[in-house]
Design a protein around this nucleic acid. Structure first.
Length: 350
DNA sequence: CGACTACA
DNA sequence: TGTAGTCGG
């Protein structure tokens, strides 16, 4: 689940109103978003939304409606899809597969005992983002007129690159990895709806979008990007999920600030024998990830209403009324988004 | 998760 | 007009 920087980042994380993102392009980590939909859009017993053929449609519902909401709010989403993960991620990918298999097992047990709550919990944990789900999601987005980018490798890295090169104003993900990849801004909780249920509790909390600005984060912590990466490596990243035993975010920050980098802390607060990974190589994965330059500006396009209807209504049994209504909202929203862009573009000349 | 409905 | 509850696929 990426690098857990929450403890050292939270002081720098500021609430942001959707109004402040109006007219801006946001590179969305598509896998992160789709995974949330797959996990969350389910019935009480954990059954996902399905068409008549029993194929899951949770991802389509989630992408469709959330994207329209974003565009209605003047935000221009750019969905960034993962490519081939680096070799170094293999171990973490295997670990995740194992967790899902175990969750499936527990789901079956809960099902036998008719424990609805557990069924949902383990169904959520075992949700998988298949190639087919990614392909279907891309097809829907393209027909909605939403720009997508196929990352050559890590989506988070590509999203960070897009923000560095000004193809996007910010990147959006629940994970902090794009900060290690150098994203200029990271938006978390990029969603409209406020109240969310706390896991396992009958309590509700307000979920609001928040932003972390890369430069102010580094300034506030008094470190460089290289040092932030070293901190991440000590805590544990997708390339070394185990991190270093006994070192959490707070300790990692303290160590790196005191010694400067991992090398200089070895033999002091870090026992060399505890480093069971090639930290220099992992550093390079974050500093020089494989990315592509899209070369062309990423813009909204006119949606293809007929194609969207064919996908959602004909193929996946969505309600015609709902889809037609939503497509109408989307068309209108894209038009005003174009107007907004034209106006702010003109403003620069006056 | 987000749309939509029911109800104060 | 706001929100708790349920449905969607």
């Amino acid at each position: 689940m990426g690098v857990d920087l929450s403890d050292i980042v939270e002081d720098c994380s500021k609430e942001i109103s959707l109004n402040n993102i109006k007219g801006k392009k946001v590179a969305i980590d598509a896998y992160n978003a789709i995974y949330q939909f797959l996990a969350a859009i389910r019935q009480a017993d954990g059954t996902p939304l399905m068409d008549k053929q029993g194929r899951s449609t949770s991802h389509l519902s989630g992408i469709f409606y959330r994207t329209i909401n974003l565009v209605e709010n003047g935000i221009i989403p750019i969905y960034v899809f993962d490519g081939k993960p680096p070799e170094e991620k293999t171990q973490e990918i295997q670990r995740r597969i194992k967790i899902k298999e175990e969750a499936e097992e527990k789901y079956n047990q809960a099902k036998e005992q008719g424990e609805i709550k557990s069924m949902k919990k383990y169904a959520q944990m075992s949700s998988r983002l298949t190639n087919n789900i990614a392909t279907e999601s891309k097809e829907l987005l393209i027909n909605m007129g939403i720009p997508i980018v196929n990352a050559p490798s890590e989506g988070e890295a590509e999203a960070a690159y897009l923000s560095q090169k000004d193809y996007a104003w910010a990147s959006a993900s629940q994970d902090y990895d794009s900060l290690l990849f150098g994203a200029r801004r990271l938006i978390r909780n990029l969603t409209m709806t406020g109240k969310r249920k706390l896991p396992n509790k009958d309590q509700y909390v307000d979920i609001v979008p928040e932003i972390i600005e890369f430069d102010s984060l580094l300034h506030k912590l008094g470190i460089t990007r290289e040092q932030l990466i070293d901190i991440g490596i000590l805590i544990g990243t997708d390339y070394n999920p185990e991190g270093i035993k006994g070192i959490g975010p707070k300790t990692a920050l303290k160590i790196i600030k005191k010694y400067g980098d991992i090398e200089k802390a070895i033999g002091k607060e870090i026992d060399e024998k505890e480093i069971l990974f090639d930290y220099k190589q992992i550093r390079q994965l974050f500093l020089n990830p494989k990315v592509i330059d899209p070369k062309t500006s990423l813009e909204l396009k006119e949606p293809d209403e007929e194609k969207i209807k064919r996908i959602l209504i004909d193929c996946h049994d969505f309600s015609e009324e709902r889809v037609v209504n939503a497509v109408g909202r989307l068309q209108k929203a894209i038009k005003s988004s174009k107007n907004l862009e034209r106006q702010t573009g003109l403003d620069r000349w006056f």
